[in-house]
Structure formats: structure tokens, C-alpha cells
Design a protein around this nucleic acid. Structure first.
Lengths: 196, 196
DNA sequence: CCTACCGATCGGTAGG
DNA sequence: CCTACCGATCGGTAGG
């Protein structure tokens, strides 16, 4: 049994990398098999289909995102602290799974139904954690009078792109990246006061 | 001649849409032909190859981005005004070419050499406009002591995602979106003062 | 995990 | 812009 599990994990690992580099559609089962030094037909002993692999990648990391954010205690902190913590855990999941994150953000649309709908539903559910933080922050005047939906989308655009430029060999640590992103989202880059 | 030009523009228009929806690799020449009510072989009278279409889409909108940003007068304005204007023209190009922008941001990696290198070089050149604005703003203390490279990347992540959520039928106008994005990037969402 | 193979589809060409 | 077609490659199966 152990061998099967390992092989499946290996397939996923190689697939994450190739799906990221070339895209899901442009990666063939033969490409995958070549990287694993087996024949394409042998892959089907471990996975049901090519899309089966994509599903596993997408929903595994979705699960990581939920597990991380659900550990945040939403009752004992201010909205700005909550937001910083949410950003930090989100960024950590991405950085710990760079290939999977890239696939998650780019290739999910190749999921077939009903998985596609399930995926979109999960994403909306996840967004609600951030919506909640923003609404709380507006209510307590911690945040300005912002458009919640627009701001949630903008926060995600800002923090999701991390997988694109983060390099483990780079000079910025994951914590520094999280801090800088939180800082930009909370305070911006200007030294001047906001004109409202 | 006019007919040929129109047909080529039609091919590009349909291709932008399909490449966006399904991705470059997952869109076949037969898909394109079907949408145009012609046969796949007939496409080759107008275009050299499938990638030829991708190249046109990517480099045309790249040109739009440059034309727009080159019209900004970099000498008579403060860094914060410059940044607002750069963001605004950038967002306008995206909103005026939603399909092409989506292809530009997602499918460029399917370009072959030497076009891929040319594309990346152009993108770096374009980023330099923003680098210049940030450096000027830091020098004049308009911006805080930020990491320039990181901030340029973060600004692009924040503003590029517009193509994903902008809907012409939505309640926010392009100008409002630009203003909100500039506001977030310059001042953030917090009402508190920045703690340095 | 392999060999052998299938039907479908791909990008593209020849020739009109 | 069409018909007719090509070699290559695709995801996947049968049977071991």
C-alpha cells in the first residue's frame, strides 16, 4: 500500500510542476510518464484520468487554505490584526505549495462539472472570511468607508500573485512578504494623509 | 483588401474570446473556424499558424500599453499624481480590451522563441515606467521607504486583475475603479496612521 | 507496471 | 474559401 501512496504523491508532485510550467492542456500523460520514467498507460493504475490529477491538486490546496484560515480566532482580535493574520496564513499556504498554488489559480477552469461548480463554491466560501473581517473593520471604524466586494477582490489580487515572484532563494522571507503586503493593503505607500 | 483585413480582425476577435475562455492550447483551429462559420483550412489563408494569432493578440495590446503610458508627461507632476495617472491609463487599456488583456496576462507563455523573449523584454521595459515613478517618489519623500522591485510587482498584481472582475454592466465605472485602486495603493484601507 | 493498440482530434498542407 | 488529406499525438483501454 505504501508504494501506491508514494507513487500517487509522486505523480501529483510531477504533475503540479508540469501543469504549472506548460498548463494542464499542454501537458500530456506521456509527458507526465516520461518525467516519472514509466509508460503512459501505467499512470492509469494510480489515477482514473488526467483530470483526476487536476482535481486532486486543486482540492488538496483548497483544503490547506481552509484549514489555515479556520485556525484564526475571530473573536479576540481587531479587524486590522485579523486581516494581517489572514493574509499571513494565506501567503504561507501559497509559499509552502508554490506549484500547486500556481495550478490552483490558473488551471482550475479546466475542471469539469460538477467539480468546477464545487470549486467556485469553495472559493466563494473562503472569500467570506475576508468579507467578514472587512465588515467588522468598517463597523469599528478600523477601516475607511470601502466597497467590501471590490476590496476583497483587490486584496486577493494583491496577495495571490505571490506564487509568481516568490523565490526561496530571494532576499525576502515569507514573513517579510506577508508583512509588506499587509502594510501596503492597510496603509499604502504614500507618506501623505489620505484625502477623503 | 478591405475584406482580408476585416476577416483577420474577425479571426483575432473570436480568438481573443476563445483563448480567454478555454486557453490557447485547449482552443483548436476548428473551434475558431466553427465560430466564424468557415472551414479550419480556410483560416490559413489569413494567418500563418495558430501561434501567429496569439502573437498578434499579445503584441497588439502590448503596443496599446506603451502608447498609453508614453503619453504621460513625467516632468511636470509629483510621483503620486504620476502613479495615479499610470494606474489609470493601464486600467483603461485593460478595460478597453478585456479579452485581449486576459490572453495577454495568461497565455503569453505559449509564445515560442524568439517571441517569448521579446515579450518578456517588453514587459520589463514597461515595468520601468513604474520603477521610475516609485524611485522619484521615494527621493521626494512622497512615498515611504519601500522596496521598489517588490512594490512594482505588487502594484501590477493589484491592477492587472481588473480584467477578471470588471463587468461593463457593473455599478463601478472604469474611472471609479482606477480611483479606488490608486487610493488603495497610495493609502490603504486603514483609518489608522502607519506604524513605522 | 508493461506491450499493443484504438478512435478521435490535432495543426497544417496540397491543390484548386 | 473549399475538399481532401496527412502524419503526429492525444487520452484512454485490453489484457497480461
Amino acid at each position: 500500500m505504501q508504494a501506491i501512496i508514494d507513487t500517487k504523491a509522486q505523480i501529483r508532485s510531477v504533475a503540479q510542476n508540469l501543469f504549472r510550467e506548460r498548463g494542464f492542456t499542454a501537458t500530456s500523460m506521456r509527458d507526465l510518464a516520461d518525467s516519472l520514467d514509466i509508460k503512459a498507460a501505467s499512470l492509469y493504475y494510480h489515477v482514473k484520468s488526467k483530470e483526476d490529477i487536476l482535481q486532486e491538486i486543486c482540492f488538496r490546496i483548497a483544503d490547506d487554505f481552509f484549514k489555515a484560515i479556520e485556525q484564526i480566532d475571530f473573536n479576540t482580535k481587531n479587524a486590522d490584526e485579523l486581516l494581517q493574520e489572514a493574509i499571513s496564513t494565506h501567503v504561507k499556504v501559497i509559499i509552502d505549495n508554490l506549484d500547486a498554488a500556481a495550478v490552483f489559480f490558473h488551471e482550475w477552469r479546466h475542471l469539469s462539472q460538477p467539480h468546477l461548480t464545487k470549486f467556485i463554491t469553495l472559493r466563494k466560501k473562503y472569500e467570506r472570511f475576508f468579507t467578514k473581517i472587512l465588515k467588522q473593520g468598517i463597523a469599528t471604524k478600523t477601516f475607511g468607508n470601502i466597497d467590501v466586494k471590490f476590496t476583497v477582490l483587490t486584496i486577493f489580487s494583491t496577495i495571490n500573485w505571490v506564487y509568481e515572484y516568490y523565490k526561496p532563494s530571494g532576499k525576502m522571507t515569507p514573513n517579510e512578504i506577508s508583512r509588506n503586503l499587509s502594510n501596503m493593503i492597510l496603509h499604502g505607500i504614500s507618506t501623505k494623509k489620505k484625502i477623503v
